[in-house]
């Protein structure tokens, strides 16, 4: 019984790591642009489809190469999407258009997948072997999910604090006007942040494909849970997502275990509503906007 709960918690943490990575990918774009990309979930699923078509039952070498190509490919797709999204914001006073355009891109990606692949869930073979925890076989992709979260957390940390471009993106989120006055190439930095968010969700989608439902309609589930993870952790706080993501994952798994699998998304929705009602800045977020 106890070990059963432990296994569920571990799986919850693993699933939650996916949410956390998606939440971090939200954060980098939101920091640089104030935009929340509603299409991020479908970009994530694109990574899963790439794993199915490019790297199902292949050797480690080809798998690694395809992982890289998938990441870069989806980074390019999201950068193009970002370019389109930013276009109307350039001149007009209309600052809400991104909400509509990212939602419609999300619908377009899902529709394209539906048309070309049908409404089926594809199963992907794991390249990493499963391992045993408390006597239960656990798919290797769970370990990959956690590893990916940790990797991206530290990679982003390094990028945002050590590299010139990363520092510039941080500067953008701290004081937009001062960044422009300093001559930082705002538009290019924003596109780079979109591309990085694509790289993140693309690679993670690829890595965890064996343990998720790779289907055209699954994207929404991940964009939702990723958002809940971001809100729980406090929007803008990557460290917060490390707690927020696994928390949401564990809640979802425990709900599935105690109540039923169909209630997972309902549980996430309830968590979201409760947090927004009682602690809208998140568990670890600071009150007030940082941008001056």
């Amino acid at each position: 019984m106890l070990s059963e709960i432990l296994i569920i918690v571990i799986r919850g943490i693993a699933i939650g790591s996916i949410f956390a990575t998606i939440a971090m990918s939200f954060n980098i774009v939101h920091g640089a642009t104030n935009i929340f990309n509603f299409a991020q979930g479908n970009m994530f699923i694109l990574g899963g489809f790439a794993a199915y078509f490019l790297a199902n039952q292949v050797g480690l070498g080809q798998w690694s190469l395809m992982l890289l190509l998938t990441g870069l490919g989806i980074a390019a797709v999201v950068a193009v999407q970002g370019y389109i999204t930013l276009l109307p914001l350039r001149s007009s006073v209309e600052q809400d258009s991104w909400l509509i355009s990212t939602v419609s891109v999300s619908v377009i990606v899902a529709a394209l997948l539906m048309i070309t692949q049908g409404p089926f869930a594809y199963s992907v073979q794991s390249v990493v072997p499963s391992f045993r925890i408390f006597g239960t076989r656990t798919p290797g992709a769970y370990a990959l999910a956690i590893a990916a979260m940790i990797f991206w957390f530290f990679a982003l940390r390094y990028f945002l604090r050590r590299t010139f471009i990363g520092l510039a993106i941080s500067a953008l989120s701290q004081d937009f006007d001062a960044a422009r006055a300093a001559g930082l190439p705002v538009r290019r930095l924003q596109l780079i942040s979109f591309a990085i968010s694509g790289l993140m969700v693309g690679t993670v989608g690829f890595l965890v494909a064996p343990v998720i439902s790779v289907s055209p309609d699954a994207g929404l589930k991940y964009v939702l849970n990723g958002f809940v993870a971001a809100v729980v952790g406090g929007i803008g706080s990557n460290a917060g997502t490390l707690i927020g993501g696994p928390l949401v994952g564990v809640v979802a798994m425990l709900t599935a275990y105690k109540v039923g699998g169909a209630y997972q998304d309902l549980a996430s929705l309830l968590v979201l509503v409760l947090i927004l009602m009682f602690r809208p800045q998140g568990l670890f977020g600071r009150v007030g906007a940082r941008r001056v």
Partner: peptide, 14 residues
């Protein structure tokens, strides 16, 4: 106005 969450040196780098 400086970038508050960047170090002094990184501010200069910008």
């Amino acid at each position: 106005r400086v970038f508050p969450e960047l170090s002094v040196f990184d501010n200069l780098r910008m």
